[in-house]
Design a protein around this nucleic acid. Sequence first.
DNA 1: GCCCCTACCTACTTTAAAGTGAGTTACTCA
DNA 2: TGAGTAACTCACTTTAAAGTAGGTAGGGGC
Lengths: 111, 111
Amino acid sequence: MKKSNSSNAINKEFLHRSCSVNEAIDLISGRWKALIIIYIHEGQNRFSLLKNILSPISDQILGRQLKDLEQNGLISKTIVPEVPVRVDYELTAKGKSLLSIFDSLEEWIAS
Amino acid sequence: MKKSNSSNAINKEFLHRSCSVNEAIDLISGRWKALIIIYIHEGQNRFSLLKNILSPISDQILGRQLKDLEQNGLISKTIVPEVPVRVDYELTAKGKSLLSIFDSLEEWIAS
DNA sequence: GCCCCTACCTACTTTAAAGTGAGTTACTCA
DNA sequence: TGAGTAACTCACTTTAAAGTAGGTAGGGGC
């Protein structure tokens, strides 16, 4: 009953092969990702801090986006075994170098 | 039966209000948009040329992406009343200024 | 014992984007 | 008359991302 011949995935691969810009956009176009990166950079570097500041987000989504960002090497995660366990996130070099691109995008959209 | 209380749309608005980077990413994250912009810039400026070069794309999708790009002011459309009617696309100033951001993204992903 | 906290995770539903198939207009060429 | 081309458009299905509900672990405080 399934059609499993997914041209969706095939097309995605075609795009990645055609131009690496597409890969880059894929990494940052998840709904909450740009904001998460910006806020971590501003010091909102914990799950609960991010959850408060991104108030309409759910735990599930926040966790998923953080995991994605970590797997793609944009942020790193440190578990601090404290009173209640603490988890700190911070930007990797790759994550930090995105910030100037975000600045360009802000300028571009405003122009 | 519907739940029409769509927090999907509400969240999207929250993101746009929070940071204009999100608006910028929305405009360029449609699956084929980056490539369309790059190819138009390289002179593949007609529907059928784009269709050939983006071979797995369908007419429907190409038309939809072109319309989006036009409505967002990244490309412009000129109808040339020729033998078989011809439609030329070209980048607007806003579209052209994206190209350097694409270059940055390519560099970033390669790093 | 019982509820609270942080930082998650699993299983599910909903929505929007992507993709498919077929039709349309208007004009040309044989 | 019939086929072909350019540039679409409509109505539909499929897929993946986003969102919702509720659960977990390991401690702390009353």
